[in-house]
Amino acid sequence: MPMRPELEAITLAAGTAGAVGLAGAALTLLVARRSPAAATLLGPVVGVASVAAGVVVTTRAMFLSEHDATLIALVLLAAAPVALAIGVLLFRSVRRLDRRAQQRLADEQRELELARSRQDMITWASHDLRTPLSSIRVMSEALEDGLVTDQDDYHRRIRAEADRMTVMVDDLLELSRLRSSAPADPGEAVDLAEVAATVVASQQPVAQQQRVHLRLTGDAPAPVRAAAGELDRVVANVVSNAVRESAAGSDVVVRVAAEPAAEEVVLDVDDACGGLAEEALAHAFEPGWRGSSARSAGAGVGVGLTIAHALVERSGGTITLANHGPGCRVRITLPRHTPAPDAR
């Protein structure tokens, strides 16, 4: 018994649309693995394509009149832009939601890292503050019990330990401020060469005491846009760290490079610390890190490079640490300040 024309048309249209739809669905799934948003744009197109394929095949098989075939084609042409528009709207909505989800995930991850960092800082501060506090307690008890012959020496040592604790607290407060406040807008031009010269001069007594040869090369003007006080602290942290970690009799070289045509100004600080392992280099800017030295070996809580890193980034620059020569090189790169042309 032959199939009725209506049933034959339905079967042919459903089969064709289903075949095209399955192929399009497979393509959409492949695209979705790379970009869910793009898959939402492809979905309506697949729907229209499958319907169009079913209608075209059916009209050709059923030998419809030219008028009817044209009418169906016009209907499909009218439906296609609507489907595409819906796809575009879905694409934008899904992409917006995806970005929000990624931003929310990044914020949550950042909060977890900050919470972990705060806990680590509390642990480090408790450890580092315990040593000078214990020293002050022991020396105070010795003075109180009259067991000290040179009281002036003990007074100086107590004062030194108190100063050491002050440095620790100041470092922690500065790091907390940097992590909790919004980046400041650098509003003034600062000569990095002049800052470097001032810092090198102030560090000379410490370097001479440790028998380290500290010198500065490159005195050409190196204008950058940054907060003057923050830039002073960055250079001072890096240079003092280099002097402290270098061996006696070695050189610490501070170099400022500012090519006239360059868009950036570079400050290099080369020390003679003996170099670091790759794993240590990767953690150098984390709070509390002091390489292989004992944590109680110097003043502060090991956040000098962390503070320098944060301040440089606030000024739109970068800071890196790498092995170089007999030690390490800290490189600070800052955008060059270019005065705005006078309005005429």
Results as ranks from 00 to 15, higher is better:
G288T: 06
V256R: 04
R157M: 09
S240L: 06
G317L: 05
D163W: 03
H337Y: 15
V55A: 15
A220W: 02
D152W: 05
I319R: 03
H127K: 10
A73N: 04
S180I: 11
M168P: 02
V239A: 05
V301H: 04
F285C: 07
A272M: 07
G288K: 08
P341V: 00
E264Q: 15
L77H: 01
A79R: 00
R92Q: 13
D271F: 05
D107Y: 08
A19T: 10
S250Q: 10
Q103C: 02
L192F: 08
R159D: 13
V238L: 11
A189W: 02
L214Y: 04
L192Q: 07
E111T: 15
L64P: 01
P341A: 04
T11S: 12
L305K: 06
A262L: 10
S140C: 03
A13P: 00
R244H: 10
V20Y: 00
D342T: 10
G218C: 05
V200M: 10
L133H: 09
L311F: 09
A310P: 02
V243Y: 03
S315H: 15
R4Q: 13
L192P: 04
M3P: 00
A49N: 03
A162V: 14
T333C: 07
S126I: 02
A125L: 13
P287T: 07
H309V: 03
A184I: 09
L147A: 15
V195P: 06
I307Y: 08
R336V: 03
R137T: 14
N323Q: 04
L231M: 09
L173E: 12
G47R: 00
S296R: 11
V243G: 06
D107N: 12
D150C: 04
V200W: 06
G291C: 07
P183Q: 09
V138N: 08
I307T: 15
P132I: 09
L143C: 06
R211E: 12
A247G: 13
I319W: 02
G43C: 11
G275R: 09
E230A: 15
G327D: 07
G43W: 07
E188D: 12
G317A: 09
S293R: 15
G187V: 04
S50D: 00
R60K: 13
P339K: 04
G298V: 10
G300F: 04
A125Q: 06
A9I: 00
A79F: 00
A142G: 08
Q109E: 13
A227S: 13
A227Y: 02
V312R: 07
E230G: 06
V312E: 04
G18K: 01
L41P: 01
E111L: 15
E230K: 13
R156V: 07
P287F: 08
S65H: 09
R157W: 02
T338K: 03
D219P: 00
L74Y: 11
V31Q: 01
V20I: 12
A220H: 12
Q210I: 02
R104M: 10
Q209N: 10
A182W: 05
N241D: 10
A52W: 08
V253A: 13
V167P: 01
A125Y: 12
E194M: 09
L7C: 02
V31F: 01
T166S: 12
L89P: 00
G18W: 01
P341I: 00
V303L: 09
L231H: 07
R211Y: 06
T338V: 14
H309E: 15
